Simulated assay, not measured.
Amino acid sequence: MGMKRNIGEVSREKRSKRKVNPLVLIVSEGKDTEVNYFKQFNQKYVNVDVKPVDKNSTGKNKSRKTDPSNLVDKAIEYIDNKYDINEEDGDRVWCLMDVDLNYNNPDPIESRTHEIQRAYTKVENYKKKSKIKINLGLSNPCFEIWYLLHYKYTTANFKNYDAVKERIEKETPLKEYEKNKSIYSIIHDQTAIALRNCEKLRSYHEDLGKNMSDINLNNINDIIKSNPYTNVDILVGYIETLNEK
């Protein structure tokens, strides 16, 4: 699964007999932060093939607006045309997106809720057709909250990326942080702490009466109202589980 897999050339029966690593396909909004982070996983995790791609990847959706629905379109394009995804073999597909509220919008929370709900509906429709689940990874306000949680547990509300960046530079070893910097080698030893902090943060929001179960149409609004928040830990935890096997 680490290489491109041509469905027409490799039958399911033959493929099931091959000793190949599970593939985790990760489609992200940004071309720097998430891609730089996850591409480093292949240097440490030898029993899983991590494939991060971004909005500028080749294909018919290249350079299109990266709203949640278009990210799902990109994932579907990869599943249909490039990778033979088989969940029974451990393969998974994730779309990573930031909540990143637009405060110029009269109702930014409702607007973003509807955008992500449309993406989720597209995910559900594709699952009915293909039997393949595309997981949505949400971070509020941005992916960098995952980095901060490697060092600090916090329930402080962050307005935007700049606020998270400021806290990262002040309270972690990631001084003068920039999105195009590869920081995996600095933070990977703190992964277990980040996993615990994410669980603790979800419990905090649950105690406030919010629905923090797996993302679905009914709880997307709750998640968007939960700041800070990320479920990237579920993706990373799954990769770690595969590697241990």
Rank of each mutant, 00 (worst) to 15 (best):
M3Y: 08
I7P: 02
I7M: 03
E9G: 09
S16E: 15
R18L: 15
R18F: 10
N21G: 01
P22N: 05
L23G: 04
V24Q: 10
L25C: 01
V27G: 06
S28I: 10
S28M: 08
G30H: 04
G30K: 04
K31W: 00
E34T: 13
V35R: 12
N36D: 12
Y37T: 03
F38I: 11
Q40E: 13
F41S: 07
V48Q: 06
V48P: 02
V48D: 02
D49R: 02
K51D: 03
D54M: 00
K55T: 15
K55I: 15
K55W: 12
N56H: 14
K60R: 12
N61R: 12
K62P: 12
T66N: 12
S69H: 10
S69I: 08
L71H: 07
L71P: 05
D73F: 02
K74S: 13
I76F: 05
Y78W: 08
N81H: 06
K82I: 06
Y83A: 00
G90M: 04
D91L: 02
R92A: 08
V93I: 03
C95T: 13
M97E: 13
D100M: 06
N102D: 14
P106Q: 08
P106S: 11
D107T: 10
P108N: 13
I109G: 10
E110T: 11
E110K: 15
E115T: 08
E115I: 02
I116Y: 14
T121V: 07
E124N: 06
S130A: 06
I132K: 09
K133G: 01
K133C: 02
L136F: 02
L136D: 09
L138N: 06
S139Q: 06
S139P: 04
C142Q: 04
C142D: 06
C142R: 03
F143N: 04
E144W: 00
W146Y: 03
W146E: 08
H150T: 03
H150W: 00
Y151H: 15
T154I: 04
A156Q: 13
F158R: 06
K159Q: 00
N160W: 01
Y161N: 08
A163V: 02
K165A: 01
E166D: 12
R167P: 05
R167A: 11
E169G: 06
K170F: 02
E171W: 01
P173T: 01
Y177E: 01
Y177F: 07
S182Y: 09
S182C: 14
I183E: 13
I187E: 11
H188Q: 11
Q190I: 00
A192R: 14
A192L: 09
I193Y: 12
R196M: 14
E199L: 07
K200G: 07
K200F: 04
K200V: 09
Y204Q: 08
E206H: 10
E206R: 15
L208D: 10
L208V: 00
L217M: 09
N218K: 12
N221M: 12
D222V: 04
D222C: 05
I223G: 08
I224H: 05
K225A: 14
S226C: 06
N227R: 00
N231I: 01
N231S: 05
L235H: 05
L235R: 09
V236H: 13
G237Y: 03
Y238W: 07
Y238M: 05
I239E: 13
E240M: 12
N243R: 07
E244R: 09
E244S: 11
E244V: 01
K245L: 05
K245Y: 07
